[in-house]
Simulated scan of single mutants.
Amino acid sequence: MNFLERNIKADVTRFFQPLIDEAYFEDKTIIEYDLGIGNVGNIPEFDEIIKEIVEESFPKLLIRCHKYPGTQGYLPLNELLADIYQKKSGFSIKPEDIILTIGGSDAITELIQIYCSHDEGIVYALPSFPYWGMTAKANAKEYYIVITSQKEFNESFPSKLEETLTINPNIRLLLINFPNNPVGYNGAEQTCKEINEICAKHKVKILFDDIYGGLAEWRIKLFDPKNLFIIDSFSKRFAMPGLRLGFIIAPTNEMKNIRPFIANQYVGPSLISILVGYEIVKRLAEKDKLDFVFKKIKLRKETLNNELKKLKIKTEETFGMYVIIDFTDTDLNARDVYNKLLKEKIRTVPYDLFYPPFYKGTKRNFIRLSVGMEPNVKQGSQKLVKIINELL
């Protein structure tokens, strides 16, 4: 399969919101309850904060857009991000250790391109967010470790990782995501330490997708900062995926590999996105509301979990903003359940979108629920539970 064919097969645009107008979101005859989409929003108090920031800052933003942004970032924003992460992790992080990118996905793609040549690869767990589109763009080989639960991750992921890296010495990167999308596991402390040791032994660098890092006990500080690349963005933490603003926090000695490569790929993220991002972080820090969005998401998740207790089938405890309902031990096909819920104006996400289109292995039979965009989680989950219980 050539580069073009791999990219076509790995097209992940089906995973995201289609290009539609605002009326779609307001028309409840189409979708009444959105318990599927992975965006974060519909938080009125936060929207007011953003409105205030934009109204005060936008005039001065426009007059600064006559400059190219560059990959050096924007020093005031880099300083804020470095300070936030340094306080959380205890690592020594300098502003120059941060590179601003066009979203978190682009950050991952660039790192794969830098550290994996055409015969080298990356390993990550399935089911997952569609990282395969990023590896296809980077034209790297990819390897999977199938994990279906929190228990399985902690009990078997380190041994499976050791086996995979031993058999495939061409693997250069491990990509992990805690709390995981979609399964919702968060590695136990001992598991993380074992992963760290295994990667050091095999000289494999760790890419840590930290986009949900404030929704569970934080694990980054358990890893060696000299072998760790942290990827984050404004999409979830600050409920602003439309900014397309992400960042890489890399070991200082790796910057000589990263910055020149990215500088030759593109000039940098939109300067408006960078300046708006800076104003958002600065104002939220001043108001002591840096974790405001994630606090709201946690409350929605508690509401969802309480309603799901009324299901006739048991759901697993998960971390983060997602829950999966597994139909493996029933006669139901998750795709059929998804279609039934959609007819009843409830959006969820079916299991097959969390596996590459060219994946031939066994796929877990589930739907994923999200509390990211739905303000009426209680009513939506009550309706969902009623429909599924009637199907069982």
Rank of each mutant, 00 (worst) to 15 (best):
N339P: 03
N196M: 07
T330P: 00
A285S: 15
I84Q: 14
I206N: 01
E217A: 04
Q265E: 13
I31F: 12
I8D: 00
S57D: 04
M1I: 09
P350A: 05
K301Q: 11
P179I: 05
L332G: 05
K312M: 07
A136F: 07
G242A: 06
L207Y: 10
D34A: 08
V267C: 08
E194S: 14
R259F: 01
Y185H: 14
M373A: 06
R259C: 00
S159Q: 15
K67T: 05
L275P: 07
A285P: 03
F327K: 06
W132Q: 05
L80T: 00
I102H: 11
N333R: 14
E48Y: 12
P269W: 11
K226N: 13
D326C: 07
E120W: 07
T71C: 13
P18S: 04
E390D: 08
E142G: 06
M1Q: 02
N7P: 03
V54E: 05
V337Q: 08
E45G: 11
I84D: 15
K151V: 04
D119Y: 10
L290H: 07
A188L: 08
H66R: 12
E5S: 12
L111T: 02
R6P: 01
M240S: 15
S270A: 02
S235G: 13
K363G: 02
I249F: 05
R6A: 10
F58L: 14
A136C: 03
N365F: 04
T362D: 12
N264C: 01
I84C: 06
I220V: 13
L215P: 08
I272C: 06
W218A: 09
P357Q: 01
I53P: 13
L369Q: 06
L175F: 03
G70F: 11
F292G: 02
F3I: 10
N376E: 12
K256I: 06
N139H: 14
K193T: 02
T109H: 11
K201W: 06
A138E: 03
K87W: 09
T109N: 14
T191M: 11
F366I: 12
P59H: 01
V281E: 04
N78E: 02
G277H: 11
K360P: 00
I262V: 15
G268Q: 07
I108D: 01
T315F: 12
L215H: 11
F178Y: 14
E110N: 14
S235A: 15
M255P: 01
K310V: 00
R172T: 07
E22H: 11
T101G: 01
T252D: 02
E197P: 00
L174A: 08
M373R: 05
P158D: 04
M1K: 08
T135S: 15
Y338T: 02
